[in-house]
């Protein structure tokens, strides 16, 4: 087997070496819940803007500590501010949690496939989020809300652990106040005083106001939650081809070269993280794939 001469003829533009991070400065760190925070960044140096599509992620580098993938949670209409929301659970996120305004982070990205919002033109849009899974969906929500006239009903079903774990509370309240958005929140457990729903997010699907025959569903959360959500959406009549999920696997390079994020034959970093449910449905039930 000879290598295609084409492969060896091109020269890399080292300015865009995909393994080198770009400096970004922290504008604000906001604590959303006990363990979750949102970090707002602005590009420094050579970059002025940072354009991305909803659902994409970046690799975030904390000086000397390490680099991790985090999805973008900001408004894609504002490329001058880069927003990430994450839980402080690992070495890098815990270090990030301690950072302050003015500190520098390294950013590589944006990477991965976006939520195919354009495919939802003219149909109802259902977002189903579980826990921190609301963060990668938020840019898509912003975009849909910004072009509200392009869609039918727009519904967000959001499940999380307890009322204290509800993310973006103010924003959810603003959206709920609109007449053209349907926002339902449920928690796994609550003490009295919580006036919302208690139960798993899949319980919200049978009664949510959308037309299953004309719906695009974007689902993000723990893998188990996404599996059960997709099944419930399908039971309601949504075509598996119209359901999109965002997968998580170990990512080190984010450009399909390090091999870590393989999920069957796909690389989650470059073929995903957003996948059409019908395309990965079989793999989702294989053990340890």
């Amino acid at each position: 087997m000879a290598t295609d001469p084409e492969l060896l003829s091109l020269k890399v533009d080292y300015k865009w070496n995909p393994m080198l991070p770009w400096p970004f400065q922290i504008r604000r760190v906001k604590h959303e819940t006990e363990d979750t925070f949102t970090i707002e960044l602005q590009p420094l140096g050579a970059l002025e803007e940072f354009a991305y599509q909803p659902g994409q992620f970046n690799m975030l580098y904390v000086y000397g500590v390490g680099e991790i993938p985090i999805s973008i949670s900001g408004d894609p209409a504002n490329p001058r501010v880069l927003v990430h929301t994450t839980r402080a659970v690992g070495t890098v996120t815990k270090a990030m949690d301690k950072m302050k305004r003015g500190d520098i982070l390294g950013i590589r990205g944006p990477y991965g496939t976006p939520w195919p919002i354009d495919q939802a033109n003219g149909s109802d849009v259902v977002f189903v989020a579980g826990g921190i899974g609301l963060a990668p969906l938020r840019p898509a929500l912003y975009e849909v809300v910004a072009h509200r006239e392009l869609y039918g009903k727009v519904v967000l079903l959001y499940g999380t652990r307890t009322p204290l774990d509800v993310l973006f509370r103010q924003e959810l309240e603003n959206w709920r106040a609109r007449f053209d958005l349907e926002i339902y929140v449920t928690v796994d457990r609550a003490m009295t005083g919580w006036r919302g729903n208690v139960g798993v997010v899949t319980n919200l699907i049978p009664r949510a106001p959308f037309d299953p025959r004309n719906t695009m569903a974007f689902v993000c959360g723990p893998e188990i939650m996404m599996r059960f959500t997709a099944m419930e959406l399908h039971k309601r009549g949504v075509d598996n081809e119209h359901i999109f999920v965002s997968m998580e696997r170990n990512m080190k390079c984010a450009i399909g070269l390090c091999g870590h994020c393989q999920f069957g034959s796909v690389f989650v970093c470059k073929d995903g993280p957003v996948f059409r449910y019908s395309e990965i449905k079989e793999m989702l039930v294989k053990w340890e794939i």
Binding site: Y14, N17, M19, L20, P21, P23, G45, A46, G64, I104
Partner: peptide, 24 residues
């Protein structure tokens, strides 16, 4: 080695800090 970076009194030197690409 992919890159090296230094800590300065204010911030860090990342490879892409300057507008000119790094000469390899």
């Amino acid at each position: 080695k992919i890159f090296a970076t230094h800590k300065r009194p204010k911030g860090i030197d990342l490879p892409n800090t300057k507008k000119q690409p790094v000469q390899e």
